[in-house]
């Protein structure tokens, strides 16, 4: 059995393009935040938002740390999004073992995000 039968080409392209899109978005936003940070007179401050609400507020007032954090969140979410999109391709291929495997991994990722917020 060759690779062609086991991994459909559109899954490969979907994963590759998902990753590329996430990287581009993260790159542009993070760079913008970093450039703003360099012109800010305060320099590097140890104060920065650590909650989603705090990041959202910083973002609304266009603070460099808020913008950078948005870019970083896109970066962190990209691999998760890659796992999520694969579920649909395995489902279409009627590869139910891998649908189950992928759903389990996705569940673990969500559990970890929820636990992370609580802690």
């Amino acid at each position: 059995m060759g690779v062609d039968e086991k991994v459909p080409r559109d899954l490969e392209l979907l994963i590759s393009n998902t990753l590329r899109f996430g990287l581009t978005a993260c790159g542009i936003i993070t760079l913008a935040g970093l450039l703003l940070l360099n012109v800010a007179p305060s320099g590097i401050s140890p104060q920065f938002p650590t909650t989603l609400f705090g990041i959202w507020q910083a973002l609304l007032s266009l603070q460099p740390y808020g913008i950078i954090d948005l870019g970083l969140i896109i970066l962190i979410v990209t691999p998760v999004f890659r796992v999520a999109t694969s579920v649909f391709v395995f489902l279409r291929e009627r590869d139910y073992t891998f649908v189950a495997i992928t759903l389990f991994v996705l569940t673990m990722l969500f559990v970890s995000f929820v636990l992370g917020k609580a802690g």
């Binding site: 740390y65 970083l72 962190i76 990722l109 992370g116 917020k117």
Partner: peptide, 17 residues
């Protein structure tokens, strides 16, 4: 890494600068 990143983000270990 994404599985752990949420925890470290909330703990304030990921410094934007």
């Amino acid at each position: 890494a994404a599985a752990s990143a949420g925890v470290f983000f909330a703990r304030g270990d990921i410094h934007p600068a």
